[in-house]
Nucleic acid binder design. Structure first.
Lengths: 364, 364
DNA sequence: AAAATTTAGCAACAGCGTTGCGTAATAGGG
DNA sequence: CCCTATTACGCAACGCTGTTGCTAAATTTT
């Protein structure tokens, strides 16, 4: 993810990331697996594997192949060679997870946050939680950093919280900087929904196409995975999906417009008609499909997960009923595979991705 | 754009593309310009420049620098070293443009297409038009190919027209393949709106951020430029922006849903209330901004360009009026800088991009 | 005229994936 | 049991990339 210039170090990082992606997706793999997946020559893969073994990131795990010829060496990722901690900062709770290099959530913990908490209060809560988690197996030395998934608007590029919705003490807070100083760890700050979709992409591996994570939790947000990377937008403020108008003559929203998806959905939910609320959300989801042509839609969020099957059914039905969608336009709809951990886990995976993922080139 | 494995040939292509992008954006440039823009060392830039000069793509254009020290050599792109032809296939017209390596439209021509034209009729029209254009300066040998921007749905990856809206004879037509055979040229097929946004991105150069092209022309479509590349979606069918619901209680659309942007807009335009139609479109545009966080919105399309100022004013006003958009959320709104040529020109630029643009890596 | 400054490029280098080829380890057949 | 075919692995040389070190050239300033 870090920008590098296009020299040979980029090649190294890129091809190493390919092998790591294979290792993360498959439980075990051999040289030929990687050759097939990457198009590299066997010899090149051998060199990459040798480097990764030297770094302790992968290791041989026996041999295989009950067939003719010399048996192939089987490799596997070393899950506990690196860790990252992910934090999901919501309005009243802090969720912390410990994620290993394989993308597995090893620990998860939720603690309450004071009403209208301050940056200092958050930092203290983070500090306590991280010390507890990092002390579990003395893995401080293998900790690559902390990822924070938070409500926006925020400036991902500069690690700045612009104006967290509904939190008074969060205006232009340089959270990444002060957290790094306070915690002594590299910190990565991103919107909650963007972190969430990263988690889904990581878990699904190489074949994961364009996708959206829809989160219903005191507001409606969308995280996007487009073209093999998280989409954050020009000002890293993408995802205000709840504030798209679906009803020109609808009620006035807090944002000033009329008939936003969020207010229409909220009114229906408030009235107790969850099925209707779910159908409203489904209209918004189909709007996204029409615009962006997505392969996957993932549903999550505390409010949605209180009625998971209702929402899942409504969205699935709406996607399937769209008459314009021919058979070649397949889209999967699913609940988040990580449940309530998805945001925090994704934030952690973003940290790991900075080290072991595909390096980002300046696009010019 | 072509997929390559991450070896040194990728580095070469990538860095050459960086220099070409600089040359396209600036009229002239020197070595230090490129060094600054790319982060490469001066020596590396010298090598790249030498390669490009050997290929005839750039050339020295005197010296400069009325300052201390040895004067720097000034380079420039050789615009007429390579050409591409772009075609915009609409329901009743075929527009052909000749674009040079610098992205300049050198010739433009419109010819009518028969009602409900067949693939054969289109190929014949293309053949005649290309021969005329390529004969203008005997530039057949410098012609890199033909780009076709067409109404969808189509399969960009396989060059297949699935089901062009409103055209009876266009079901699962392998247009790229048969056109290549018929014309003897490499052919690139893409949706009209995607080609259009490529043109805008090319013309604006390196600093062009996430953007959308909104096209109103017998339907409403959207082309997207996200993260430094065109966004086509999981099934290369992104852009059906006109079929997003903005009025849950609105009239039934041809697509089967109620209150699509397209039908609501169409009703207003039909009633002669262009200002209202423009405001409806503006609601849809703001929806896009909320979802995707775009830096630029470009307006085009025959129907829109009949009332350019009305639409421009309505969209600009709606974007500016959005109370949630703080000062750091700036978005430019403009009419297409290439006017009616934008689709065809973008299709041509996509062809040039395959050869001289940033190579695409398999994202895994 | 000499010094300072900036640009350009040759030459050697490190590091990447690739190619050529020899070696190791297995199954199957005589 | 031995031989052969087959498959996997890796050393060594190679071509190419951008980088580094250094020299030469061209201009302005002193």
């Amino acid at each position: 993810m870090t920008r590098v210039t296009a020299d040979v170090t980029f090649l190294r990082g890129y091809n190493q990331a390919l092998v790591m992606a294979v290792g993360r997706t498959a439980r075990t793999f051999e040289r030929s697996t990687v050759v097939e997946a990457t198009g590299l020559t066997p010899q090149a893969v051998s060199k990459v594997i040798a480097r990764l073994i030297a770094d302790g990131l992968i290791r041989p795990a026996g041999v295989r192949r009950p067939g003719i010829g010399k048996p192939a060496v089987v490799y596997e990722l070393v899950p506990d060679s690196r860790y990252a901690i992910g934090a999901h900062v919501a309005r009243r709770t802090l969720r912390l997870v410990l994620v290993d290099l394989a993308g597995t959530v090893r620990h998860s913990a939720v603690s309450p946050l004071p009403r209208d908490f301050t940056p200092e209060q958050l930092l203290d809560a983070l500090s306590v939680g991280i010390d507890t988690m990092a002390g579990l197996g003395d893995l401080r030395s293998r900790l690559t950093g902390l990822g924070i998934g938070m409500i926006g608007p925020l400036d991902h590029a500069n690690g700045l919280v612009r104006d967290a919705h509904g939190l008074r003490h969060w205006h232009d807070v340089p959270l990444r900087e002060i957290a790094e100083k306070h915690l002594g760890l590299p910190v990565h700050l991103d919107k909650d929904v963007t972190a969430g979709i990263t988690a889904e992409a990581w878990r699904h591996g190489a074949t994961f196409g364009d996708a959206a994570l829809i989160m219903v939790e005191s507001g409606i947000g969308g995280g996007f995975w487009l073209g093999g990377a998280a989409h954050r937008g020009a000002h890293t403020n993408a995802g205000e999906f709840g504030h798209t108008v679906v009803d020109l003559t609808g009620p006035r929203c807090v944002c000033g417009r009329h008939g936003c998806l969020e207010i229409v959905h909220h009114r229906a939910a408030e009235a107790g008609d969850i099925a209707h609320a779910a159908r409203v959300l489904a209209v918004g989801v189909v709007n996204l499909l029409q615009t962006l042509d997505l392969a996957h839609v993932v549903l999550t969020g505390a409010d949605l997960l209180r009625h998971p099957q209702t929402y899942l059914a409504a969205v699935t039905e709406a996607v399937g009923a769209d008459a314009r969608r021919a058979d070649w336009l397949s889209t999967t709809v699913a609940l988040s595979s990580l449940g309530a951990d998805v945001i925090a886990a994704g934030a952690a995976m973003q940290v790991l991705d900075q080290h072991y993922g595909i390096p980002e080139l300046a696009p010019i």
